[in-house]
Design a protein around this nucleic acid. Structure first.
Length: 605
DNA sequence: ACGATAGACC
């Protein structure tokens, strides 16, 4: 029980007879005084004084005091790991408590390797790790990320009998998730006998990390069904993010509703995620409303608002928000600038975009990444400045990637410049990515130019390379459920009704002057077959389904994985008049809001 | 003394 050496008790000034319970109680009292001295420190200066006092009174030899010194110095906001290390080194035989806190301090400072080295030292000295050691170590492995070390540490914790510790298990789910090992995350989760909110949260985050959005929502549903419905910010952030990616506005709004009901305030992260969800699910006005009322905006809040406006083609407003950000003295980073440049390119603001690009380099000292170059190629290309775009690529200080050439190629297709298109395609195909949709774009361009011989050549090449196109799909949410439509798919229920509706729609549209644009349909030689394929594009199926299952006058929202074809664009404009519906489509790049026969993109896309 | 969250070129 008495570990302290009796020698140091000679320092005590209080006479022993005043303490009927003996020297042990006296010592305890002094320890308490020291700890409260440490706890009162508000900065490193005060702390150093407390440290000096403790040394002076010989209380450093109390491991209780020494441990407290290390812990406080390592973990306080004002702390210093250098100073904590110097104290730590003075401890005669540090135990797991001191080691744990040193490890935590290093993790807090993001000196993750240092944390792992500390653990090595701990093992070498024969100090036995405890249940508090492993969660911290696993966090270090998660943030590095370091799978090998993580697995080793997993093994160690298992050997020491901590495999049933819920904190260790939660940390393991998190660590495997951050290392991209989703299977291992799930395996740990499955084996758990008791789960806490943190376990669910870590599992959802692991799926979000890999972009497995549907799974995120499924797990969230399961979590709620199991009665684990406590409102947890980190869970909701991932759920909202999943809604953003899937375009599930209703579910997102539903989540927002539960936020409002169950929380007294939203933190910046949650609020930013919510705004992002609203903007990217087609409810830009609501996102903007929340953004304007936000009490504390940071760089990220501005960033999501700028790219949200950009996606809707509101270039001028995006630039306004950007200058507001600068007025607030928030320093833009490279990602913010990507948003700004997209805003310019989608709104056709060529001069402004080029100016922003220069400003980014000169005023904010940001070295452009390949993404920024991509934005400029898009900016020039969309505006029909194809030669400039090509020159721009040639003068880049880095190797252009496939996306750049693809951007140029689609611009060539839009502006029907076959010669430049050939150049872009040559460069793109030389990268040997064997991306079927690249060949399709090229072939469509030839088809538009009526160069049938070339179309056939591309087609042959595709066959010989065994390339098949990833099918385009359209998602539509009806009554909080997301439905997926794939072109020409006839396998889903109610299929009959949808195709009847398609037939009816087309018949009505023709009265208004619509005629199908079959020039870009790659397959099917005869006109009838082409028309068939065109009319069963996934977007049209999704529209038909929505018109059947939603009430008259309500908005239709569709999310696509590819760019909209020009026929679907024209078609949807007609639908918006004939059926008096507002139809909002998020394609791969941006939003199109169809109303009264016209689209918000003003046919610039 | 334990888990933890956001934005990006086609």
């Amino acid at each position: 029980m008495i570990i302290r050496t009796s020698v140091h008790q000679t320092h005590f000034l209080i006479p022993q007879e005043d303490h009927p319970q003996g020297p042990e109680s006296n010592f305890r009292l002094r320890e308490q005084v020291c700890v409260s001295l440490i706890k009162q420190c508000k900065n490193l200066e005060e702390f150093k004084q407390a440290h000096a006092q403790i040394l002076k009174f010989g209380m450093f030899w109390s491991s209780f005091c020494a441990n407290n010194l290390v812990a406080t110095c390592a973990l306080s906001d004002w702390g210093s790991m250098d100073y904590a290390s110097s104290i730590f080194q003075q401890i005669n035989e540090p135990g797991s408590f001191a080691f744990n806190h040193m490890i935590r301090g290093h993790v807090k400072d993001m000196n993750l390797e240092e944390a792992l080295l500390m653990y090595d030292e701990m093992l070498e000295l024969g100090v036995e790790p405890d249940n508090f050691t492993y969660p911290t170590l696993l966090k270090a492995c998660a943030n590095l990320p370091a799978l090998e070390e993580g697995m080793q540490i997993h093994g160690h914790s298992f050997k020491l009998g901590f495999e049933d510790d819920v904190f260790v298990q939660n940390s393991l789910i998190n660590m495997y998730g951050k290392c991209g090992e989703i299977g291992l995350s799930c395996a740990v989760f499955e084996k758990m006998e008791q789960r806490t909110v943190a376990s669910w949260s870590a599992l959802i985050a692991a799926h979000a990390n890999l972009g497995l959005w549907c799974e995120c929502l499924e797990i969230f549903g399961e979590m709620s069904r199991e009665g684990c419905w406590r409102v947890e910010e980190s869970v909701l952030v991932n759920v909202l993010s999943a809604c953003t990616h899937l375009g599930a506005l209703d579910l997102g709004r539903c989540t927002q509703g539960s936020l409002i009901r169950n929380m007294s305030g939203l933190n910046v992260i949650l609020e930013t995620t919510l705004i992002d969800m609203l903007a990217k699910c087609g409810s830009l006005d609501k996102g903007l409303f929340l953004f304007q009322r936000m009490a504390k905006k940071n760089k990220m809040s501005y960033s999501v608002m700028i790219s949200g406006l950009a996606m809707h083609g509101h270039g001028r407003e995006a630039l306004k928000v950007f200058s507001e950000m600068l007025e607030q003295r928030l320093e833009p980073d490279d990602v913010v600038y990507v948003g700004v440049l997209i805003a310019c390119s989608h709104a056709g603001l060529v001069e402004e975009g080029l100016q922003c690009f220069e400003r980014m380099k000169s005023e904010h000292g940001i070295v452009p990444t390949v993404q920024h170059y991509g934005c400029i190629v898009d900016l020039l290309g969309r505006a029909g400045k194809l030669n400039e775009a090509y020159e721009f690529i040639k003068n880049m200080p880095m190797e252009p990637n496939d996306i750049l050439w693809r951007t140029l190629l689609s611009a060539c297709k839009v502006h029907q410049n076959v010669e430049m298109g050939k150049i872009a395609a040559r460069e793109l195909f030389s990268l040997n990515l064997n991306n079927a949709s690249d060949y399709v774009v090229m072939s469509n361009m030839y088809a538009q130019a009526q160069m049938w011989h070339e179309v056939a050549k591309i087609r042959k090449e595709m066959v010989s390379k065994g390339l098949t196109q990833i099918p385009g799909f359209s998602l539509v949410e009806v009554k909080r459920k997301v439905y997926k439509f794939v072109s020409q798919d006839k396998s889903y229920p109610q299929c009959q009704g949808i195709y009847e509706m398609i037939h009816q729609m087309e018949w009505q549209l023709r009265f208004e002057g619509y005629s199908p644009d079959t020039s870009q349909v790659l397959l099917g030689v005869d006109e009838e077959e082409r028309r068939q394929r065109l009319s069963s594009h996934s977007q049209k199926l999704a529209i038909a389904f929505s018109l059947i299952h939603t009430s008259q006058g309500s908005r239709v929202r569709i999310v696509k994985n590819i760019r909209m074809c020009s026929d679907c664009h024209t078609y949807t404009k007609f639908i918006s008049t004939v059926y008096e519906r507002e139809i909002i489509v998020r394609d791969r790049n941006r939003f199109h809001r169809f109303k009264d026969g016209s689209c918000s993109c003003r046919d610039y896309w």
